[in-house]
Structures are given as structure tokens and as C-alpha cells.
Nucleic acid binder design. Structure first.
Lengths: 214, 214
DNA sequence: TTTTGTGAAGTTTTTCACAGCG
DNA sequence: CGCTGTGAAAAACTTCACAAAA
């Protein structure tokens, strides 16, 4: 079975929404309600959920707790992923201090920075290394995932160092600019400035298409 | 002519790449080279660019400076957009201090926070107000765009306040969770945790599809 | 009756493949 | 010849519409 990236992104949203609904005491929810709350068509919600088996009750809807658990299982990790964060500036710190990142699926194993005042210290309980130590530390600790929150100019050299560790499998890049990596490394880019530019572009259009909550 | 959101996002990437190439002294570049550097097919690059007229030279490629200017014009703003930032935590500060946000297209007009230590002070040269002042400050200054970098629980009430100002047109939401807004408000969401979950999902798949640089 | 699950239809986006032009 | 621009084909994704189940 083949699952689209967009479906997975929506699945993450569904799960969070269901957690909220659960806290608020809802027991049952329909695809229509989920769709309205997330700005998605009900048929899209049902299609997404149907890829993973029948979980709703016809004429009733979905049981909030059960659906949440079902989605959690789809998204479940086979292990605790070891993660490194390169760049402990404001962006890096924002991630470290974001409660959503304190999940059992991942563990921050190392921080990397070029700032002498940070190197050698523990930040949020995680040791910060010089970025030149990326290959050895990642290899030694078996860190498969790198989050890149460094200045644009440093991004490529950081990934190159991480690739040379031989254990890197995925990158979450919060940096701007191109990033050249071998095909077997999975890269997900998050480019906030590009999203803002997109917003500006569509706002200047005479006929605003309206809300787009992907 | 109708332009897709994804095309605009790529256009932003092309422009940045061209700026880099220009600095490095390149005069001409082919769609193949652009594609290789950004992880995009050459045909996709040509298709994107063709929506806005013929700009390349057959048999030669694209003139770096000319193409950069051409794309800059497509993305150009009709005015300087007035922007407010709600949430001056690590994430908000990361944006404020990111050089990419110091563009002539936008001007930060106001900051909003709930922290008494920040309210009434200037941060990075911009005045920080209590978030309860969102409607009046936004209306008075004609702020059409709101960047949301507040904790998930505060997001909806911040947008509601911004909507009540009557001048809000677009939102860049860096917050998790659903956001209900009228159809005429354009919302762009950036959900870093969802992107990380997506990365984990695809890494656990037996057959990794490889690099995905959208 | 209500709401799911889903094949089929529709739409959008990407890729192909080649004519056309420097 | 090489590389763009672009219709046509293919692929991906979304929406429709309805049978089936509670």
C-alpha cells in the first residue's frame, strides 16, 4: 500500500485534533466535523483514514479515542530515534524548548554549534559539540536524523559532515537555500520565509482565493 | 493565468539559488543545473518558468541576472506589507533576528505577547503590546498580516482578536493545531513537528523512497 | 436515517518528448 | 548541436456519489 506525503501530514493533524476533542470530552466525531475544524473536505478525511482499514461506524462516525489510537499506531516509531540538532540559535532553542518535541519517539543525543560559548556546555541537558565533531559524534552514537537550524551558509557543510558519519538517514532542514545530498538521504525542508513570500504573492492577487490550510 | 501554490514556492527557491549563483560569478545556467541543485526535475523548472513568458535562450540556458530579476518581479509586492508578530518567544525572536525577514517587502509594525516583562518594551526596535491590544493596534496601523508564534492554546484567540480588527487579510501560522478563520482570510501553516513526524514515518518504511526536497 | 468506505470521475501537478530556435 | 518552451501523456491527488452498514 502506498501512502502519500500529504496524507501523512494530515494524519498528524487528525491525531492532534482528536487529542483535543478527547480532552474536551467528545466521544464520537464525524468526518464532516473533522473536516470543518481543519479546513479539509469530509471525503478527503474519509479517504485518508480508509487507507488504513475500516475504523469508523457507519451512521455514527468515529470513536474519538479509538481513532486517535489507531492513527497513533500508524505513525508509531519502531524505536526511539536518535536525533542531533545543528545550530543552537533562537530557532534551535525554540525547537528544544517546544513541548511537542518532547515525545517518546525521539531523543536529542547531541547539539552542534560553532559558537565557542556554547561548545562544551550542556544546553537543555544536552551536550553541545563543535560542529567539526559531527562525523565522530553521530557515528559513535548512531544518530540517524539531523535537524538543521544553522545559518544558510553553513547548511551544506553541516550535511556533508553528517553524511560522512555514515549513519545519517534523514534531515529536517529549517534552513534556506539548496541542499545537495545523496538519493538515499531523506530530506524534509521547512522554509518559513518561502511560505511568507507565498502568502504575500496570493494576497496581492486581485481575487483572493481565500483560506488555504493545507 | 492560474499559478499553483507549489509553483510559487519553487519560484522563491529559484530566486535564492540565482542570487547565490550570481555572487559566485555564474552568468548562464540551464534548467538542468537548477534542477540538480534543488532536487527538482529540469522539466518542472522549465514549466514553472514558462508560465511567466519566455525568458531563456534556446541552446544556451537562462541568463542568471536576468532570470533573477524576472522572478523578483513576479514575486514583487505592490507595497510594503505591514506585519504583526504575536508571540515573542524563541520562535518569534528567531524570525525577528533572521536576516531573510529584513526585506523591503515587509515591515514589522507591532509585537504582541502575554508576558508582562515584554509588554511595553521595544524588542529589536519594535514595540511589544499586550495581546489584548491586537484589535486596536492592528486596526489603527492597518496591519494586514499576522505571524502567529504563540503557544498552541493561544493561537485561536489571537486570530479571533486579529479578525475583529477588521483589517486582517493573511496569517502565517507557526503554531500547531486547528485554526478556524473566515474564508476570506488566507492562512499559510508551517508545522515543524508535523514535518518531523512525516520524516520519521518515511524513515521507518522498509523501502526508503529517498530524497524529497519539495 | 445517518455516516462510513470506496470505485469512478474529475482535477491538478508532474513528466515526457519533441518541435523550434539560437 | 544544445537547451528552451510546450502540448500531450502520465501520475498523483481530490472530490463525487452511492451502496452498505449501524
Amino acid at each position: 500500500m502506498k501512502v502519500a506525503e500529504l496524507t501523512i501530514e494530515r494524519l498528524v493533524q487528525y491525531r492532534r485534533l482528536l487529542e483535543t476533542l478527547k480532552e474536551e470530552g467528545y466521544r464520537v466525531v464525524s468526518s464532516q466535523q473533522i473536516g470543518d475544524l481543519l479546513g479539509i473536505k469530509a471525503s478527503q478525511v474519509r479517504k485518508d483514514l480508509s487507507y488504513f482499514g475500516e475504523i469508523g461506524k457507519r451512521g455514527v462516525g468515529y470513536h474519538v479515542g479509538r481513532l486517535r489510537d489507531h492513527i497513533a499506531e500508524i505513525l508509531a516509531s519502531p524505536k526511539i530515534w536518535r536525533i542531533a540538532l545543528a545550530g543552537v540559535g533562537n530557532m534551535g532553542t525554540a525547537l528544544l524548548s517546544n513541548p511537542a518535541f518532547h515525545t517518546k519517539k525521539i531523543r536529542f543525543e547531541a547539539l552542534f554549534d560553532a559558537d565557542q560559548r556554547k561548545i562544551g556546555r550542556d544546553i537543555s541537558g544536552i551536550h553541545c559539540w563543535n560542529y567539526t565533531d559531527i562525523p565522530s559524534v553521530m557515528a559513535y552514537r548512531g544518530i540517524e536524523i539531523l535537524i538543521l537550524a544553522v545559518p544558510a551558509k553553513a547548511a551544506q557543510s553541516c550535511v556533508d559532515l553528517a553524511i560522512s558519519s555514515g549513519v545519517l538517514r534523514g534531515v529536517l532542514a529549517l534552513t534556506q537555500g539548496p541542499l545537495v545530498v545523496p538519493d538515499e538521504i531523506f530530506v524534509v525542508r521547512v522554509d518559513i520565509m518561502a511560505e511568507l513570500e507565498k502568502l504575500l504573492f496570493f494576497l496581492k492577487q486581485p481575487i483572493s482565493t481565500g483560506s488555504v490550510v493545507p
